[in-house]
């Protein structure tokens, strides 16, 4: 996920790691199958999903797999 370039769109394949962080992401609308757009890459990064923007920082306790989608 953190390898997405700015402007690239991807679909969340899986979120794993620290359960409470995974849970938090779920609550904020980030879950398997949702489309995300990388707005600003780097650390912390800014992503857009379902009409709102989230800012978050990569950390060891969280693993997010994304399938990059063509275009976007």
């Amino acid at each position: 996920m953190f390898r997405l370039a700015a402007g690239q769109v991807g679909e969340i394949a899986s979120i794993s790691g620290d359960p409470s962080q995974v849970h938090r992401l779920h609550e904020l609308g980030m879950y398997q199958g949702i489309k995300v757009t990388m707005v600003r890459s780097g650390t912390p990064c800014v992503i857009r999903l379902a009409g709102h923007k989230l800012c978050f920082r990569q950390n060891d306790g969280l693993e997010i797999q994304v399938n990059p989608l063509a275009g976007g």
């Binding site: 620290d18 962080q21 992401l25 800014v46 989230l54 800012c55 978050f56 920082r57 060891d60």
Partner: peptide, 10 residues
Amino acid sequence: GQTPALIMEL
């Protein structure tokens, strides 16, 4: 403790 992920709505 583990540095919590900064997850913040903009």
